[in-house]
Amino acid sequence: MKQLPVIVEEAFVYDEDKHLTVMKTSLFFAGDGYTVYDCKGELLFRVDSYGPDARDKDEIVLMDAQGKCLLTVRRKRPSLHHRWEGFLGERTEGQKPIFNVRRSSIIGRSSMTVEVLKDSGDEYHIEGCFGNRHCTIFDAAKEAVAEIKRKVDATTNVVLGKDVFSLIIKPGFDGAFAMGLVLVLDQINGDSFDDEDTEMDPTADD
């Protein structure tokens, strides 16, 4: 297993590929909620960002199955590059972020750059189109550490809607960190992309 730094929680670093199912749960509410299950149907992560006690829409908390706050992602304003920051646990005033995410370019479609601010100072890049649930997270050596894909129903072989998709975690990569990046991508990209399978490409013409 490739040795990668633990960024959020060691409990979510695995020795083999981990296939997770991500479901948006707030289709009939204001805001975005998520539940994340492993291949055995066990709940791993959840996000509740709707209801009377909802936080600012620019701040989202990732929790484990028991409701422990693992990570807070927050949009940094003002920011031309749609910069988001990640904080360990439930963010407090004055707390320093452990990573940030930004678009590689403010012009046209582009990849995302993830800079880890704690310990290792590693950098990751996200390429593809999250709006179409088709993108990959690469480390600095251009090796894939996580993938987001459309989910196929195993019994019917039918591709499911975009509100249910797969997150594949490679061995050694922090799954809680990966899910935090999914939350950021969902907020940055949402479903604003066309249904055409257009990739994020830093060299593409607008």
Rank of each mutant, 00 (worst) to 15 (best):
D15W: 01
F130C: 07
E85T: 05
K162Q: 14
E199K: 11
D38Q: 01
R77L: 13
R133A: 03
I188Y: 05
T156Y: 09
S111P: 06
E85D: 07
L181N: 01
V164P: 07
P52V: 09
D32P: 06
I60N: 05
D32Q: 09
S105Q: 03
D56A: 10
G41M: 04
R102F: 02
G33P: 07
R103N: 07
V158P: 06
L185P: 06
M112N: 01
V184E: 04
R75N: 12
G86H: 00
S111Y: 04
L160G: 07
P202G: 02
Q66K: 13
F165E: 05
M179I: 01
C135W: 08
G131I: 02
L88K: 08
D48I: 15
S166F: 04
Y34K: 06
I137E: 08
T21I: 10
D153V: 11
R74N: 11
H134D: 14
V101A: 01
L71R: 06
T92L: 02
R91F: 05
S105Y: 03
T136W: 10
A30F: 11
Y37C: 05
I60G: 02
Y34I: 03
V36K: 04
H125Q: 14
I107R: 08
I148R: 04
L160D: 03
L117I: 00
G89R: 06
G128L: 06
I7K: 02
E85C: 06
G31W: 05
D53M: 15
K68T: 13
S104F: 00
M1E: 12
S79D: 03
H81N: 07
F28M: 07
R75S: 10
G190R: 11
R133H: 06
N157Q: 15
K149N: 15
A146S: 14
E85V: 08
F12P: 03
R46L: 13
S110F: 00
T198E: 12
S105T: 09
D56W: 08
H82I: 04
V145E: 03
H82A: 10
D163S: 12
V158R: 15
G175F: 00
F45T: 01
L88T: 05
L181C: 05
L183Y: 00
A154N: 14
V73K: 05
A144N: 10
D153E: 14
S79Q: 00
R75H: 13
G161P: 09
A146G: 12
V116G: 04
F138D: 06
D122K: 02
D32R: 05
A178M: 06
P97A: 03
E42K: 12
V22A: 11
I7E: 00
M1K: 11
L185F: 07
R46N: 15
V47P: 03
P5G: 04
M1V: 15
E123Y: 07
T155A: 15
G108T: 01
F177T: 01
H125G: 08
